[in-house]
């Protein structure tokens, strides 16, 4: 347990969150910090309009970035609606069991690189089990109620950094704080 914490604001509907997650969860390996996962509801489910040109540009841009990072992207299955809510609820359970890294990496890859429909039990169940979660506990979590921001966002001390492409700036702040292992 480190004295410093980075809050990682994440949306299962954000492909940029998917790109950020592996490097975000890697930070405690290299720095004296803990990652606190914060799942947030997608913008479009919080009443904020998302123009069609933004949606299309995001797919183009994420594909370019995924290629640069050596990560698969596509086929996708947009989790908006039940899929995002189910993932958020299971992620709370995963945090309680300290399995959030395993669950978040597996489910975001399933959504954004394997085209898995996580709004169905058929889609979500094998991911939960592979992440080490008990499916019955997940089903209970899914039936529980819940949980904001643009994502992915990192908060370290008083600084907010928005974007999967700002992890290098976050690392610079961690270096400046003398937290490199």
């Amino acid at each position: 347990m480190s004295s410093e914490t980075i809050e990682f604001f994440f949306s299962f509907r954000s492909p940029y969150s998917y790109l950020a997650a592996p490097r975000a969860f890697q930070l405690p390996e290299n720095y004296e910090v803990d990652i606190r996962f914060r799942g947030v509801m997608p913008m479009a489910m919080r009443g904020q309009s998302v123009p069609s040109q933004k949606r299309i540009h995001t797919m183009f841009d994420t594909k370019r970035e995924a290629n640069r990072l050596g990560m698969p992207f596509g086929p996708v299955f947009d989790p908006i609606g039940d899929g995002a809510v189910r993932c958020l609820r299971v992620s709370e359970l995963a945090v309680d069991q300290q399995l959030e890294k395993q669950f978040v990496l597996a489910v975001s890859r399933a959504i954004w690189a394997e085209g898995v429909d996580v709004s169905t039990d058929e889609g979500l169940r094998p991911i939960c089990i592979a992440a080490g979660l008990d499916w019955h506990a997940c089903q209970q979590a899914i039936s529980d109620p819940l949980i904001e921001a643009r994502v992915p966002v990192f908060r370290f001390r008083e600084q907010l950094l928005w974007g999967q492409d700002r992890i290098e700036d976050l690392e610079r702040l961690l270096d400046a704080a003398g937290l490199r292992r």
């Binding site: 949606r55 299309i56 797919m59 994420t62 596509g74 086929p75 996708v76 299955f77 429909d117």
Partner: peptide
């Protein structure tokens, strides 16, 4: 699924 995957 199909439309966003096609855009990619």
């Amino acid at each position: 699924n199909l439309a966003p995957s096609l855009i990619i």
